[in-house]
Each structure stands twice: as structure tokens, then as C-alpha cells.
Nucleic acid binder design. Structure first.
Lengths: 203, 203
DNA sequence: CTCTTGTCGTACATCCCTGTTCGACTTATG
DNA sequence: CATAAGTCGAACAGGGATGTACGACAAGAG
């Protein structure tokens, strides 16, 4: 069942289609196959030569996105000072969100809910581990549900991406803004909000 | 050009259609006219008798939603202690978001961008006034763009709505969670996060 | 009660998108 | 350079949604 190697231009086209689909579907989840093919500089028929149907294409796109995202996030160090770890996690998360955030949101519609849940569960679990850690050390607030805090974190990150797309927020300020926002969001009432920049000196 | 009064049942149907469209479009922005008509307990043709086309229908739905939302939010007192005012604004905003949030998000797709911007501009301006006020008093952080803070506020509110729809967050806890989150989000680094519940005793 | 207004089902034309087939053409590979 | 692999445009059938037209029927207003 090992398919034999594609010709060079075919391989190139598959990549181009995947890239175009990533960008196009992010902009419009209902983009037609035609739009995607044109954006890839390829005939519609060629696209069908490589992907069974629409579902197959978006599955491939999302799968690739998830693989790359997972790779970037896997080895973020979540130990040590929770606030510093939070900043590290956000820096890493921001990169993948900027590239794939809109796509994932777009895909949420055309994908089975279970798959979407699976896609989000890993990043959510990571964030939750971090928050639990910070709570255990008394550094993060405990008067709100953890699941809500994770959701809010997710939402703020997506909002930043939208903001950047809209040109309201410069891309290079985004990570700092998210981190600052999040730090405030997690600090317990009655405690002092830590300064972001002190935690981000390494950048 | 004053259209003469509709018959009683016609008026009832228009309302039913508007209600059904609000609910149906919130669930699925691409819902067909047929779905909406059925949900309203009305024939598809009847729907066309009252609304020129799809665009006209969603325009009417959104316009009604905005009018009602505006009415609820108009007279929130934004003066006095900024943190307390924030809680008041959030309580009011939460109500309309819970009812119309999903719809507005859904409509963002099929509506001209300019109209959407207009729809959001009023609530945004209100939030911005409040934040400016808090900043002037040294109560809110100034190390992040105001527009970003407004966006984050918006995003968190929507996230809460999504969370409630998903059953993760009880509806009656949502307003408190949003307010607590937002307070943290606006408190300057180096300052103490105020306690939400102290500010919400009135409820 | 009568007449106007509104409703409903069916049917129809139209449009757009999907997925497939075909044959001619181009490009990589050996 | 010769062959196999890949591309392309045009064209087709199918399905679904939109918007319109018609005629029979129900319901509110006076």
C-alpha cells in the first residue's frame, strides 16, 4: 500500500494547495474549491487529483496545521515560576495562533465536533496544568473555574489574532499584550499584578 | 411612502419570522430560508411576502437586535468609581450578549463590513469612555492600547456566552466571572486587583 | 356577511458548487 | 529523447438554495 513517490511538480502543487487552502479557508470557511485552486495557481481538476473531495482537503489542511502546532508547543517548559512559564507558553502559543488560528476557527464548522474537541484538548490541558501549578503556589486566583480561565485565555489569544489581522494591533506587540492581559486575568484579587516586561527580558 | 397597517396575523407572522431567524441564524449562519420559515411555522413563500430577500431578512433581524440592545445599554451609569461602573456595564452587556451574541457573530459573515463596524462602534465607544475614565483616575492600566483592552473585553464576553451555550459555565455565574476577569485585565501592574464581589453587593 | 389581505403548496427557472470524464498538452525522469 | 506522470480547460450531471408565479384557500376588517 506504499504509494510510490510523486513527481516533483506534483509534490510542489500539493504543498501550494495546502498553503492556499490554509489561507483561503481562514478568510472564508465556505470558500469554494475553485477559489482555493485559483489561489494555489492550479486547476480545479488538479486539486481533485490530489484530494478525494472537500472533506479530504480540509482534513489534510487541519491535520498538517495540528501537527506543526503540536511540534512548536510540545516542549515549552511549564515548570518554575508560574508567571514566567505563562509568558513562555503564550509566546509559543501566539506563533501558532497567528498562523493557524483563523483556520481552526473556520474549520470548526465543517469538522465533526469530536475531532475539534480532540484538537483543542491538548493545548487546553497544557494551559490547565500551568494554571493548576500557579494555583498550588498561591500565585493564581482560585475564585473562578479553571475551565473558564482556560477558555478566556483561548479567547483572548484569538482576539489578538483578529486584532492583528484587522491592523489594530501590531503583530510584534501582540505577544506582550496577551501576556500582560493574561497575567492580570490570573492574578488573585488582593494581590499585585506582576509586570510583564520584567518577565519577558529574555526576548 | 407610509405603508398602511398590516393585518393582525401578518404582524404576528413577521414577529415569528424575526424570532425564528434570530434563533436559527445564531445556531447556523448558513441556515436556509426554508429552515427559518419552518422554524417560524410559516411557509417559505410567506416569508418572501414580508422580506425582499435573504439580505433584507438578516438586515431586519440584526437591526431589531441592535435596537433592543441599544435600549438596554443606553442608560448604564458610567460615572463614579470606574471599577464599580465596569461591573454595571458588564452586567448590562452580558444580558444582551447572551441573547444576541451568537446572532451577531453569525451575521458578521453575511453583512457588509461597514455595517458590522457601525453596529459594534457604539458599544465599543461606551467601553472606551469607561476605560479612559478609569485611566484618568489611575485605576486602570495604561501600558496597553485602549483599543486592545476594548477588544479583549468584547472577546471575553463572547467567550463567556460560548461557554454558557456549551454548558461549561452556569449562566448565573457568567456575569460575575466576566467582571472578575475584566477587573484583572484592567488593573495596572504593581496595583492590587480589586475584589469583584465587594463591587457587586447590590445584585 | 363580504371583500380585501394574507397564507400556503406546488411548480418553475436560475444560479452556483461539487465531483467526474475526456482528450490535448506539458513536464519530469530515466 | 522517449515515456510515463501530471496538468489543464471544457463540458457534463447532480444537488441544493434562491427567488418568482400561480391559484386555491383562510382569516381579519368593516
Amino acid at each position: 500500500m506504499t504509494t510510490r513517490p510523486l513527481r516533483a511538480d506534483a509534490r510542489r502543487n500539493v504543498e501550494a494547495i495546502l498553503d492556499a487552502a490554509t489561507a483561503t479557508l481562514a478568510r472564508d470557511p465556505d470558500a469554494s474549491i475553485n477559489d482555493i485552486a485559483k489561489a494555489a495557481g492550479v486547476g480545479r481538476v488538479t486539486l481533485y487529483a490530489h484530494f478525494e473531495n472537500r472533506g479530504g482537503l480540509v482534513a489534510a489542511v487541519v491535520e498538517r496545521a495540528m501537527r506543526e502546532a503540536e511540534a512548536s508547543l510540545r516542549d515549552v517548559d511549564l515548570s518554575g515560576d508560574p508567571a514566567a512559564a505563562l509568558v513562555r507558553l503564550i509566546d509559543a502559543t501566539w506563533q501558532v495562533t497567528l498562523r493557524y488560528g483563523a483556520l481552526v476557527v473556520a474549520a470548526e464548522k465543517s469538522m465533526p465536533v469530536t475531532e475539534m474537541a480532540a484538537a483543542h484538548s491538548e493545548p487546553r490541558a497544557r494551559a490547565q496544568r500551568l494554571i493548576d501549578h500557579g494555583r498550588a503556589l498561591g500565585r493564581f486566583r482560585t475564585d473562578l473555574p479553571v475551565s473558564w480561565q482556560v477558555t478566556a485565555m483561548h479567547a483572548v489569544t484569538h482576539a489578538a489574532a483578529t486584532s492583528v489581522y484587522a491592523g489594530e494591533l501590531p503583530a510584534d506587540e501582540a505577544a506582550r499584550a496577551i501576556a500582560a492581559t493574561m497575567l492580570g486575568l490570573l492574578t488573585p484579587p488582593g494581590q499585585v499584578v506582576p509586570d510583564v516586561d520584567a518577565l519577558r527580558v529574555g526576548r
